[in-house]
Design a protein around this nucleic acid. Structure first.
Lengths: 341, 341
DNA sequence: CTGAAAGCGCTAACAC
DNA sequence: GTGTTAGCGCTTTCAG
């Protein structure tokens, strides 16, 4: 902490102009490379600005241009496990355009969200990214906002809105194909609550990949449960006790996969020799904590954030953007849990 | 995404004034509750503003008042596991003062950090919170910034700066006292790399609590390693093979504690009946994934963020703030891993 | 090529 | 009580 804050005001264009012996307008042109100036004048101004430590006041510029060069981020995900990589990706796209991110976390509270929306609008943000946990749809912010909005990870319930999502179905299909490619034939699927769209999409991917290969899903269909290690362990016992033959399991999350893997090992089943296991999320602590490390489907959240920000920038630049859902492909990460013997 | 963005400009005070049949100055007073206005006039203005959907332009206000009502957050922590709860706490304190947070993630790159610092200053943020993973000190942003700065979680290497940190030593002492209070006498300590300050502080707390109780640390001192479950499992084996008697282990992280707990169980040692285990972080996936769930030291990161933001607000309001380190107490969370038989 | 002047939207003095 | 004016710091015409 500075012991004596706000010691002196920041220099203005007028100060630089005085120091360089020119007018404020000339300073503006020199600093922004606009207009036609003599090389000598330009250098004189630049030198004066440098000497004074001049930094243009973005607030003043924003008032004039009507643009803040800030995008608002409205998130419901207080845990942040999904949000942070997404923001990192978004920042890459935005940073290149000199834009900053104003972060508002609504904690899933609609009142709070409405409040933050008002704040963002009052600050004249150039656009808004809405994000949150992916499990289900979320209410649209509405169609009549003065700035463009992109939904990332969390799908808007209004199809006119643009939602950028990961491709759950494709990711699941990749996982199952990988199990098949590594010689497994009797595949089981352990997943979360059947009501969630992510669970439905992943199941669709599983069924598609198995249908293409002409193989059935073992254990009379998917095992629905919750997103926890405990459920994974329980599912291992259920599979073993059911008497069904299986040599590969696709779990809809790394937590489930880790629990399942632990459960199998503790029952004397060898992963990957007897059963191959694949998870979803590429979540380091789960993936590396499991023994052996998990093959998993990476949701490419940074890429997703990058795409969302890129689409938002296009909309801010006035390019017409169509609503609907855009899906970013997932990526299979191979590790020991599906290694070939 | 709005299919036709920026359809109409936001109404201004002038628009409201026209609609209400008064002057812009009157509108300002009515909206901000300043000055002396007739009740009737005030209501007329409020009604007009409401009808037009007027939202004051904070950019313009900021230009005039010289305050942006934004604090910059400079973080090096790309994982975000620590940063997010901290930001949540900070937002509580800032939101009450109508301030927003501009988020900049430097990913540990000093060039990037310097760049972001420039951006924040150009945007005339009212203050800056610097944060990052806690393991070690970080370089100061410098003393001659035009706005106050508070370091949270990551200590500045300049003692003139104000750093808000969790109290590692106290947390460790609480953990050890709890093991002693639940009847354990022979306590071991499994921790991270000896070079890290967090490791040193936690060790100091362990030694203090043991000294007060007149008990020695078993196994000839702490077991140093890395912050991983694998190290926790290995430490379990080392302790068992060393032949040392022990009935309580304080681990310097939940990951280590979970690994250790797994290692003990797999070697037939019952937690908590034979050995009590305590971790640090209160990290849900580790704490709930362990069998049984872990007693742990919560770092109170939200509280830490709240304190940091509160101190920053005080400094922004011109109250003199002393540099140095302020420590926020930790909180012990009791679960099954130390339950009494 | 450079300077002067206007104005973005708001608020704080100061008139009336 | 309310209106008028000036100005925050910048950019952008438009003269010169």
């Amino acid at each position: 902490m500075d012991s004596a804050p706000q010691k002196k005001k920041n220099p203005t264009v007028a100060d630089v102009a005085a120091a360089a012996g020119v007018s404020p307008g000339t300073v503006s042109k020199a600093l922004n490379g606009r207009g036609a100036l003599r090389q000598e004048t330009r250098e004189k101004v630049l030198a004066a600005a440098e000497a004074l430590g001049f930094q243009p006041n973005l607030v003043a510029r924003g008032l004039l241009t009507g643009r803040s060069y800030i995008v608002g981020v409205l998130t419901t995900d207080s845990i942040g496990r999904f949000t942070i990589p997404l923001l990192t990706g978004a920042e890459d796209a935005l940073g290149a355009g000199q834009m900053s991110m104003l972060l508002c976390e609504s904690r899933g509270d609609p009142i709070r969200e409405q409040h933050y929306l008002g704040v963002l609008l009052a600050r004249r943000v150039d656009g808004i990214i809405v994000t949150g946990r992916s499990s289900d749809r979320r209410p649209s912010l509405g169609r009549h906002l003065p700035v463009p909005v992109v939904y990332a990870l969390a799908q808007s319930d209004d199809p006119e809105d643009l939602s950028i999502l990961h491709d759950d179905e494709d990711g699941a299909a990749q996982a199952v194909r990988h199990l098949l490619d590594t010689g497994r034939r009797r595949i089981a699927h352990v997943t979360g609550p059947p009501s969630q769209v992510a669970v439905q999409h992943r199941l669709a991917g599983v069924e598609r990949a198995l249908a293409e290969a002409g193989e059935p899903l073992v254990a009379d269909g998917p095992l629905f449960g919750e997103w926890s290690e405990a459920w994974g362990r329980e599912a291992a016992q259920r599979l073993l006790r059911s008497g069904a033959e299986f040599d590969g399991v696709f779990c809809a999350s790394d937590q489930i996969a880790r629990g399942l893997s632990d459960g199998l090992r503790e029952s004397g089943v060898d992963v990957p020799r007897q059963v191959g296991v694949v998870g979803v999320d590429n979540w380091d602590v789960m993936v590396d904590g499991a023994r052996p490390p998990l093959t998993t489907v990476d949701l490419q959240l940074a890429e997703l954030g990058n795409v969302a920000a890129t689409r938002l920038l296009a909309a801010i630049d006035g390019k017409p953007v169509e609503g609907g859902v855009e899906r970013v492909p997932c990526r299979l990460i191979q590790r020991q849990s599906t290694a070939l013997a």
